[in-house]
């Protein structure tokens, strides 16, 4: 019986992976200075141990543009897309709510508040890493507060988690507005950061996101079958042998860690974590063992496309967070309408 879905899953995974690799090569070639795919492959090969000999017939600026400017940005975009989509799958699975994402839990707002604070105070204590560090601490503190608020009798309930997230998120948003009001000169920097950007991507950032994504994927794949069963509600999943309370906290921490790192490195990029799991659920069904890897790949591809669009195609560089919201929002409305129409009962 599983033949059909399995075949489809493998085919989809393979094509997404191929599209992603192709997308990375093509996107690297696009921009102010067009670079051929062959040259890009040569540059990558030389960096991976092929030696300088491969680069002799290239202009000396080209390897610099590829390795130091474009690739970090492109890889960061892909990794952040993957991380946001992966966290989206986990949040939706735990909170039993298809609308759950880092926003709903207040995580994004926490990170944004932390970053705004660092930018407002013109914090340079930790040099280049001040803003990401503050964003990260903000996200984790927010998560802890939200989890504490929604714990009753030693148990976290899915509904109260979302409520607490929305409340804390609203308070933090007000805090951000207040900081913006207070900041005279830095207000532009804060606003720009809040809209999300890959323009300042570095290899350190890329490595950080890659590490967080790897940990996140391993943990969530390990518990993916438990996550399936947790969608039946706590009473059922407990009775089916899942340590629901423990797995819930562990997955919540994992997904939030990935989100926090993504937001810290790039600012706020919405809708990826919401749309991608929805789209992929259409294609491979609700089983998280398939949904997680497929969504991760699709998220990477989608954000890579969006970032390339704003970087190399559009005449002006629109902030990536604005672009994903502008494209993703209406698209989400469409999916939402169709989904409601397709339901016969309930």
């Amino acid at each position: 019986m599983q033949q059909g879905p399995d075949k489809r899953f493998l085919l989809l995974t393979a094509s997404l992976l191929a599209a992603l690799l192709l997308g990375i090569i093509v996107a690297t070639g696009m921009g102010y200075m067009a670079i051929g795919a062959g040259d890009i492959l040569k540059i990558i090969a030389s960096r991976l141990g092929g030696g300088e000999a491969l680069l002799t017939d290239l202009e000396p600026t080209i390897p610099y543009v590829v390795l130091e400017v474009r690739l970090p940005r492109i890889l960061t975009a892909a990794l952040v897309g993957a991380g946001l989509a992966m966290s989206g799958v986990v949040y939706q699975g735990i909170l039993l709510n298809p609308l759950a994402d880092p926003y709903t839990l207040g995580i994004s707002s926490g990170a944004a508040f932390g970053a705004s604070l660092a930018l407002f105070a013109n914090m340079t204590l930790f040099g280049h890493f001040s803003t990401p560090l503050f964003a990260f601490v903000g996200a984790i503190l927010t998560l802890l507060v939200v989890m504490r608020l929604s714990t009753f009798n030693g148990q976290i309930s899915a509904q109260t988690l979302i409520l607490s997230g929305v409340i804390v998120g609203a308070i933090l948003s007000a805090g951000i507005s207040f900081l913006k009001y207070l900041a005279d000169e830095q207000v532009a920097i804060i606003i720009f950061w809040l809209m999300g950007s890959f323009a300042a991507s570095t290899w350190q950032g890329t490595g950080l996101v890659a590490a967080a994504l790897l940990v996140g994927l391993l943990v969530s794949l390990f518990f993916s079958r438990d996550l399936n069963i947790m969608s039946l509600g706590r009473r059922s999943s407990d009775a089916l042998g899942v340590e629901t309370a423990r797995v819930r906290v562990l997955l919540l921490l994992t997904a939030s860690l990935v989100t926090a790192v993504c937001v810290a490195v790039t600012g706020i990029i919405g809708f990826i974590g919401l749309i991608v799991p929805h789209l992929m659920r259409y294609l491979v069904g609700p089983d998280n063992r398939r949904l997680l890897p497929v969504s991760t790949l699709a998220g990477a591809l989608l954000l890579l496309l969006a970032d390339t669009l704003t970087r190399a195609v559009l005449p002006v560089e629109v902030p990536i967070g604005v672009l994903t919201a502008l494209i993703g929002g209406p698209f989400f409305c469409l999916i939402f309408r169709q989904k409601q129409k397709a339901r016969s009962y309930e």
């Binding site: 509600g233 009775a239 042998g241 899942v242 609700p286």
Partner: peptide, 30 residues
């Protein structure tokens, strides 16, 4: 441990979510 208990006790709860988008076979297989 919950898993060991689940091999001894099965519960049919009063209210039941059946997740999003699983088939009857998948639910029973759970």
């Amino acid at each position: 441990p919950k898993r060991q208990l689940a091999r001894q006790l099965a519960l049919v709860p009063q209210e039941f979510d059946t997740g999003f988008g699983f088939t009857v076979e998948e639910i029973v297989l759970m």
